[in-house]
Design a protein around this nucleic acid. Structure first.
Lengths: 344, 344
DNA sequence: TTGTAGGCGTTATCAA
DNA sequence: TTGATAACGCCTACAA
């Protein structure tokens, strides 16, 4: 049988209120009774019932985390960051995978809200934010990670995607590439639009005309990366380099390149967004745009805990925390000195 | 303001009890009142308070998951499997990383228990199981993943590690390798001992004497894999092949091999336990022992849900579910036909 | 310093 | 079919 405060109180011969005070460490009790209660609690193995406590205090000390898929390098690492800071602050984390599905997202949202989480970290799918918006307005502390949604009045933590992509493509151009393909992620998601726009800006600045034939629309998943790459390879006038908008699609692209025995970077240069541990292991090592994913997690969690502490006082405001991505130049895009064949 | 049952009841003009029945979908109510209550509940946006419900029903519909580190390919994939089945059954998952630290594990255990989780999936650290044992005896439904602990009276889901390692090393031997190094994981953990024993059995069966100089003791983490590999490379009489007991250490090993520009497999063959997505992307593609990690997760979750449903009736028994690992032969160990230099 | 008692939002028993 | 009412375990005025 589970022990309750009542058990402790009875055994010690005091009231429940007194027992509650010493175990909850508040109010005033004589040091003598305190000692006795503590001793008895320990001896019968009393453990507070957090559910019952939450009922009274209206705080659960638990947070919801909704991401698209824990299976991708980026989110794994974000979640690890979150968990590290929450565990230090004795909050715990309920993990949910939305798979980019707005319905799934909404049903998790509802579930978490009913469970009275104290706060939420989410990488929203982007379609149909109305429920999320409602929760924010209702006062639920929320932090967005990876994806900005400007109409949401809350804090977002993400990398400067536009600059990241821009630097990447500029790098490609500096190595002599002119026909540069892009494998986009899910359109409609700001993160992706930003990366796309960085790509276009880099081209424009270098006077390279934008060619719609060089853009493939993916979905952030591996399979689409593979397909898109296969399509590039099948073109009569194929790109000499490709920029891929995230890690799973980059994996797919590399798979396709491997299947076609395409030489990297001679026959196709490749640069991926996200820098998984295995990037340096490839041959040639993969050039990438690194996001400080672990930090995105820790920062998001810290910010969320702050918001939770001052909940009630003041409206939630739109606020952006933007981190810098870093171009990790390795060898998958070719050498500075190499000359590129041009097609005209 | 949050709406409660009471609000619904008042607005509808019925008692709380009736409202509870229709919203909780039990007991009997006339279809007329049911309709009215439902309508009213919807119109004011009533959502049940799961905390309050748990308080009464003594079930939280939430599960704890404790693994060493979500950041490793194996556990990421296990967790994804778990989450997929739990979400279908409207259970949710609290994720905890123990980092192989028994204290951290125990404090999570305590925390989860206080939160009254309905069940637990854990990959235990191995030292100091007494608290976990106590929880199992107290009736908490528990399923062990990846790691067997025979003295715990509960279900375990894991791969046949001994056979996996045995096949791996046999493969190495069949390719002509005689000096085969091993990078072990944390000693004391059954999973690791099993892999080690498979290694030794393969050697013994082929009449190759066991050489303690060829075994390195790691900790399942990347850095130790790198160190161990460096040490192998520094030996005057270095192994021609190495078997690495998990994915992060394999990553470390590959890093070290890369830093030393060691040719794979000519100068060093390598075979790793765990088959991350990127294994086929390497050059040469990495030969591995694949564990059905996603299935380990789904099975563990299914078994746990079953146990939860029949909690109370019957003691928890020790039960093992063992899955088959699969040798994924690629090219990092050399060719069938190659001859190996021997050192004697 | 201590104890009494009400309430958090549900569920569930028992009469009506 | 309905409605009071008592829990669930804890916190917290308020009174003693």
């Amino acid at each position: 049988m589970r022990k309750t405060l009542r058990d402790v109180a009875e055994k010690t011969g005091v009231s429940i209120a007194v027992a509650s005070r010493v175990l909850g460490n508040y109010g005033s009790v004589s040091s003598e009774t305190r000692r006795k209660v503590l001793k008895e609690a320990k001896s019968i193995g009393y453990q507070p019932d957090i559910i019952a406590r939450s009922m009274k205090t209206r705080r659960t000390h638990s947070l919801g985390v909704i991401i698209s898929d824990i299976t991708t390098f980026f989110f794994t690492s974000v979640v690890r960051g979150i968990e590290d800071v929450t565990s230090q602050n004795s909050y715990n984390v309920t993990l949910c995978n939305s798979d980019e599905d707005a319905d799934k997202e909404n049903s998790y949202l509802k579930e978490l809200y009913q469970r009275k989480i104290d706060g939420l970290i989410i990488s929203p799918t982007g379609e149909n934010n109305s429920y999320l918006k409602k929760l924010i307005r209702a006062g639920l502390p929320v932090v967005l990670v990876d994806r900005r949604v400007s109409e949401l009045q809350t804090t977002e933590v993400a990398v400067d995607n536009e600059t990241g992509a821009w630097e990447a493509v500029k790098h490609l151009i500096s190595l002599g590439h002119r026909r540069i393909g892009i494998v986009n992620g899910l359109s409609g998601i700001r993160t992706n639009e930003e990366r796309f726009s960085g790509y276009k800006r880099a081209l424009a600045e270098q006077g390279i005309p934008f060619d719609p034939g060089l853009v493939k629309y993916g979905d952030f998943r591996m399979e689409k990366g593979r397909q898109a790459t296969q399509e590039f390879l099948n073109m009569r006038d194929r790109p000499t380099a490709m920029f891929v908008a995230n890690e799973p699609m980059t994996t797919g692209a590399l798979l396709a390149l491997g299947e076609n025995k395409t030489k990297i970077p001679e026959e196709m240069a490749i640069l991926g967004f996200d820098d998984p541990v295995w990037a340096p292991l490839l041959n040639p090592p993969l050039t990438t745009v690194r996001q400080p994913s672990y930090s995105i997690g820790t920062i998001a969690a810290q910010v969320l805990l702050q918001k939770i502490r001052k909940v009630g006082r003041g409206r939630s405001l739109h606020e952006e925390i933007v981190l810098k991505p870093k171009l990790m130049i390795r060898e998958s895009c070719g050498e500075e000195t190499s000359t590129r064949r041009t097609t005209d």
